[in-house]
Design a binder for these strands. Structure first.
Lengths: 329, 329
DNA sequence: TTGTAAGCGTTATCAA
DNA sequence: TTGATAACGCTTACAA
């Protein structure tokens, strides 16, 4: 592979000049620049980014850490972030944590070892406080968190208006005529889930209903636990569920169909594409992952100042929250 | 950040010794190694991978190039590859091409500039022959292709048994009683799609039916074109469609539901998770993305020898291929 | 078993 | 405007 030294030799100048010419420095005569560019093209030169990064003490790689890449939400966040970052000349290195604390530590160490320019991340469920994050990344690697954030940590946080969204979703169920509304809540070490639970409770209170721990099913984010929790909700006399996730809502629907229940409303969260394709189609509180990814990337580019940016959620009303629904296989 | 020079100074040895001690060379006294490791831990030392890579002339990053990361198929391939690669000490850099030739060229250049250890890729639809791939990567960067492959290129190819799979899918429709079976075919510059078309044709011939260009709808892989093609298929008297993709099959179902058609069979390809969640649930020819990712990664680790590995497909039979089906909104 | 010295390819600083 | 020189942090012949 061609190096700037070879180009310099071919032109009878020094590597410094070639380097300056190729990196757009103004301290090069126009004619020299032309000559250098021509030779570079002729030799098929490509800058050795590794050497350049070592010398400059920084890299053009931004790490993205997510629990699971195949979740639509996260792959869309990545898509948005990638678009903005590529545009700005950065590359993206993706790590999955599989919701495990140990994998998250490993991923962050990998990124630090590669001296990445910055990290965009959404923490694992298994990661119960963010102290490891700052201690691994140190002062030099800017951090932007999105969706699942630890608000104590420095850097920008991109979040959804979880409280407001859950409030609206629950109120929608109330307006439809449902009266005993339970919730499939997530893990309370995640602020996003905690806020959704609060929004749900507030909506009940504002309608004169008292929240009850008996119908708040915590740690319920997958299909299986959604199924189990829905059976308990039925036993507890619920006639609707606001679920803080789509997959748990899907599990709940499994239970409803199994028993051919009527007049039982469901609203999920995340608007995974299957929600619109199922039938009856599932109402869901849509996050805005692509936009969140763009904003996270932009926040990094802008310097990852401390602070929070809120991306709105939008309630998608479909059949599962219709009062007259009948669930059938 | 601590360097080996600092550790060396603190211990009164040279950086070479520290380097050897930390990289597990046998040419270090056991006591020295202990001392070095202790100091390294004390200083919180982490090897500067960038410098190490520059010196050794290689990196521990493997590039993965896919058309779109949010397609379940690809995110699962990435998941499988990542698992195997991380285990072997590699990191993964992911690039999307958005099905565009230009983006594919850019991605490959980026990977080359970063001197990645290897590339795993599935080419874009817009990329009609693979010459740019080898010309950008050159001799030094091993290539493993998966799913959409150019068989002329060197390196390992991981493919599905597309011919056999499409044959089975079509035969299944015939066995159900459908008689005039069309196909939503993909782009013929992709060998995977071309093979599926051949498998489909062979199944017809083996049942004494003559393939007809009139009911082979080429370049049809998204929902919208699937919808349009299905209308034409209905006009052409078809009573079933084998679709080489799930999204086009979904579009076809849109058309069927719109007209409340009965006795019209559909089999898709890829087994995207929505296929099982819709109702009626869609029969689909399942690829095995996670396994393909694992095999691609393993092939790279094993040296990306020329050759082809075939990962079996599996037909998932659901309601959409039942002869008595009635499509309703 | 350890040290010496050179170099991976680039860029920053200083001097000319 | 260009050149000389050093350095980024690490690895590896070779020598001791």
């Amino acid at each position: 592979m061609t190096t700037i030294t070879e180009i310099a030799a071919a032109l009878g100048v020094t590597p410094s000049t070639v380097s300056r010419a190729l990196s757009g420095s103004p301290r090069v005569k126009e004619a020299t620049r032309k000559a250098v560019e021509q030779k570079a093209a002729e030799f098929g030169y490509e800058r050795n980014v590794v050497a350049s990064n070592l010398r400059r003490g920084r890299s053009d790689i931004v790490g993205i850490v997510v629990p699971r890449i195949h979740r639509e939400f996260f792959s869309n966040v990545i898509g948005g972030a990638e678009a903005v970052l590529n545009e700005a000349g950065y590359n993206v290195l993706i790590c999955q944590t599989h919701e495990r604390y140990e994998d998250e530590v490993k991923a962050l160490q990998t990124l630090r070892n590669n001296r990445v320019a910055g990290v965009l991340m959404s923490h694992a469920i298994g990661s119960s406080d963010g102290s490891h994050i700052t201690s691994i990344l140190g002062q030099n690697i800017p951090l932007v968190q999105f969706d699942r954030v630890f608000s104590k940590l420095p850097g920008t946080k991109i979040v959804s208006n979880n409280f407001e969204g859950a409030y609206q979703a629950t109120r929608h169920l109330l307006q439809q005529g449902f009266r005993r509304i339970g919730t499939l809540a997530g893990y309370m070490n995640s602020e996003a889930y905690a806020q959704r639970l609060e929004g749900y409770r507030k909506a009940l209170k504002d309608s004169g209903l008292e929240p009850s721990a008996q119908i708040e099913f915590l740690d319920t984010i997958v299909r299986e636990t959604g199924y189990d929790a829905c059976k308990k909700a039925l036993a507890a006399g619920c006639d609707a569920l606001y679920s803080a996730g789509d997959f748990s809502a899907l599990g709940a629907i499994d239970a409803l169909k199994e028993q051919s229940i009527s007049h039982f409303g469901i609203v999920g969260t995340a608007n995974e594409s299957f929600t619109a394709l199922m039938s009856p189609a599932m109402s869901s509180l849509a996050l805005n992952p692509y936009e969140m990814g763009c904003q996270a990337a932009q926040a990094f580019i802008d310097g990852a100042q401390d602070g929070e940016k809120v991306v709105p959620m939008e309630l998608k009303i479909r059949e599962s929250s219709n009062f007259n629904i009948t669930w059938q296989k």
